[in-house]
Design a protein around this nucleic acid. Structure first.
Length: 426
RNA sequence: GCGGUACUGGCGAAGUGGUUAACGCACCGGAUUGUGGCUCCGGCACGCGUGGGUUCGAUUCCCACGUACCGCCCCA
C-alpha cells in the first residue's frame, strides 16, 4: 500500500459519519437550549498556551504534546484539549469586557491531538466536544453545566449514567488539605507505589487517583478534602448538592476524585457509564469542573470558568447499537431506471425533478441494463423506482414501483408531483 | 518512550523454499433483447505490508522499517 493514514489517525467514512453528525447535531441543539454559542478556535496554538495551562510538570507537556517548530521557527502545538484555546480566545477577544453578557457560554467540537502510542480507543487525533462558561461564580452554573451534560447524554440515549462529584475547594482549602494529606501519607511512604512516592510532594492529590491497589487501600483512610473546605467553599458545594437534588439528579460524592491539572477548584465532576464496550466497571465518558486561575494564567483578568469535555470516539463506542443501526441507514427515496439510450435525457431530467420535490433521488451512470439498474436500486435501498422507457416517453408517463411491495403503477407526467406525493404517502 | 502479537484479493481466510496462490462472502457478466431480492453457469490476487539479505529460486527463512491491535508510562 503506497499511502496510509498517519499513525493514530482514523478516517470517518460513511455510514459511520452519520453517527458523528448525529452526535454533533444533538450537541448543538442541546447546548443551544442552555444559551450556549459555538466558538471555533485554531487547531494549533503557540506551545505556551498549552504548557502554561497544563502547568509544565509531568509528561503531558514534554511527552504527549504534538508540537513542532514551523518555518518561522515558532514553537507550535496541535491542541491537546479544548479549554486552553477557548480561554486564550476569550482573553484575546476581551470577552470579559462589560459589553458582553455574562456568563459567556461557549461550546466547541473538533479534533484534538496527543502524541502517544495508539491503543484501545486512544488515537493521536481524536475528537472532543466541550463547553465553557466564563464569568460566574454561582454554584448554579456548576449545576447547569452538569445538568446539560447529562441532558446531552440522555438525548443520545446513553443510559446507565452515573454522576460523581467532588469539591476541591478554594486555594486555602487545597493548601490545608495538601499538608494534611502529606502528613497522613508520609508515615506510609515506604508502602506507596513508585509513582505515588514521586507524586507525594509534587502533587499529592494525584496519589488519591492512583491505580495501584495498595495505594488505593491506603488512600481509603486518608483525610477527606471535604473536611477541609473553607466556609465559602463548603457553602458553594452545599448549594451544588442541594440544587442537584432539587433537579432530581442523582449523584454520588467521591472525595478522592481529583483532576490532573492545578487550575481546577470547587466543583469537579465525572459522568461514568457501565458499558461492556469500554471494558469492565464504570468508565468516565465526560469530565469537567470549575477552574478559576486559568483565565488569569493566560493573561486575562480574574474570571472564573466552568466546563466539561467529552471524547467523541469513546462516546460512539457506547452509543446504543439500535440507534447506530438506524443512523447508518442511508436509504434513497427514488432510483430512476432508464431503458434505452433515447430516454437518457428525459430520465436525467426526471431525477432532477424528483430532487426539486425534495426527494433523495439517483440514477445509473454506468450504462447498466435494466436488471443491473434494479440491482443498484436495491443496493441503495431505494424505496421506489421510477422506470422510464421508450413507450413511457411516447405516452408521457412513467412507471412507479414500490420496491418493498413490488406494486407498480403507471403515472402521468403532467401531474407527476401530486401523483408521487400520494403514492409515497400511502 | 518501552514490551507482546499480527500483516495473503473489496472482506473473511487456507497455503507452500520451486512451473497456474485453495475456499467462502461481496462484486461483475450470462441464462432472463424492459424490472431487484431465489437458482444455475462464468469472471474476478502479474501477487502474499515496505525495503534489504540468504538462496539456483522466497509470499514461505533472516534483518530492518511501517502500520494495526493489546499492555506499560501517561491521560489535559
Amino acid at each position: 500500500m503506497k499511502y496510509q493514514k498517519p499513525k493514530g489517525t482514523a478516517d470517518i467514512i460513511p455510514p459511520f459519519s452519520n453517527e458523528w453528525q448525529f452526535v454533533e447535531q444533538t450537541a448543538r441543539e442541546t447546548f443551544k437550549l442552555y444559551n450556549y454559542s459555538e466558538v471555533r478556535t485554531p487547531i494549533f496554538e503557540n506551545f505556551e498556551v498549552f504548557s502554561r495551562s497544563a502547568g509544565d510538570t509531568s509528561d503531558i507537556v514534554t511527552k504527549e504534546m504534538y508540537d513542532f517548530h514551523d518555518k518561522g521557527d515558532r514553537h507550535i502545538a496541535l491542541r491537546p484539549e479544548g479549554t486552553a484555546g477557548v480561554v486564550r480566545s476569550f482573553v484575546e477577544n476581551k470577552l470579559y469586557g462589560p459589553e458582553h453578557a455574562k456568563p459567556v457560554k461557549q461550546y466547541y467540537m473538533g479534533p484534538m491531538f496527543r502524541y502517544e502510542r495508539p491503543q484501545s480507543g486512544r488515537l493521536r487525533e481524536f475528537h472532543q466536544i466541550g463547553v465553557e462558561a466564563f464569568g460566574s461564580d454561582s454554584p448554579r452554573i456548576d449545576v447547569e453545566t452538569i445538568a446539560m451534560a447529562i441532558d446531552f447524554l440522555h438525548r443520545l440515549k446513553v443510559d446507565g449514567t452515573k454522576l460523581v462529584i467532588n469539591s476541591l475547594g478554594d486555594l486555602d482549602t487545597r493548601k490545608n488539605y495538601r499538608q494534611a494529606l502529606i502528613d497522613y501519607l508520609e508515615p506510609h511512604f515506604d508502602e506507596l507505589s513508585e509513582d505515588s512516592k514521586e507524586r507525594l510532594h509534587k502533587n499529592p492529590l494525584r496519589v488519591l487517583d492512583s491505580k495501584d491497589a495498595n495505594d488505593q487501600k491506603l488512600v481509603e483512610d486518608a483525610p477527606s478534602i471535604l473536611d477541609f473546605l473553607t466556609p465559602t467553599a463548603k457553602e458553594h458545594f452545599d448549594v451544588v448538592k442541594e440544587t442537584l437534588d432539587q433537579l432530581g439528579i442523582d449523584f454520588v460524592i467521591d472525595s478522592n476524585m481529583v483532576r490532573g491539572l492545578d487550575y481546577y477548584n470547587h466543583t469537579i465532576f465525572e459522568i461514568m457509564v457501565n458499558n461492556k464496550a469500554l471494558g469492565h466497571g464504570d468508565v468516565t465518558i465526560c469530565a469537567g469542573g470549575r477552574y478559576n486561575g486559568l483565565v488569569e494564567e493566560l493573561g486575562g483578568p480574574e474570571c472564573s470558568g466552568m466546563g466539561f469535555g467529552l471524547g467523541v470516539e469513546r462516546l460512539l463506542l457506547i452509543l446504543n447499537q439500535e440507534l447506530k443501526d438506524e443512523l447508518q441507514k442511508n436509504d434513497l427515496d427514488f432510483y430512476v431506471v432508464a431503458i434505452g439510450n433515447k430516454v437518457k435525457n428525459a430520465a436525467f431530467k426526471l431525477v432532477q425533478d424528483l430532487r426539486s420535490f425534495n426527494y433523495r433521488a439517483d440514477q445509473d451512470y454506468l450504462d447498466r441494463k435494466p436488471k443491473g439498474q434494479f440491482k443498484s436500486a436495491d443496493k441503495y435501498h431505494a424505496k421506489y423506482v421510477l422506470t422510464l422507457g421508450e413507450s413511457e416517453l411516447e405516452q408521457g408517463t412513467v412507471n412507479f414501483k414500490n420496491m418493498e411491495t413490488g406494486v407498480e403503477k403507471v403515472i402521468k407526467n403532467d401531474n407527476l408531483e401530486q401523483e408521487i406525493k400520494s403514492l409515497t404517502e400511502e
